[in-house]
Amino acid sequence: MSKADFFKEVREQKDYKKAIEMVPYAHFLGITFNETSEGLVFTLPFAEKNIGNPLLPALHGGALGGFMENAAIMHLMWTMDSLALPKNIDFTIDYILSGRPKNTFAICKVIKLGKRIANVQIEAWQDEQNNPIAIARSHFKIFRT
């Protein structure tokens, strides 16, 4: 079975854990996700290794950015028919609040799903969803199959 077919099965079975295991970097960060009434919600559980400044302490900005980028790719993979991995074209992140040593959540919104390009907006928060710690937007090259 090819990786694409395997992912299709994972997606049909809604096996969120297996989907993450297929992406080594997502697994390394410890990302999890599940489906709620609001759509897919991604979680970056607190882990010592994702700290950037231990004295504040604060989450590493790169770990937060990496988490949000992962969320966008997985969101596209989960919601599009295509089984081809979207390719990042650009990613812009605005840091609003410093990330505290606790769980971080992210939700993605596909602003435009074109034939070849997708524009995705990602919001990350900790305590309250309407109080984001970072917002990002990203363009992806997508491949319709």
Binding site: M22, V23, P24
Partner: peptide, 14 residues
């Protein structure tokens, strides 16, 4: 552990 695409072995853009 930093790979994003297990088919190509490319590092994740994150």
């Amino acid at each position: 552990k930093l790979v994003g695409n297990i088919v190509t072995g490319a590092v994740h853009t994150g």
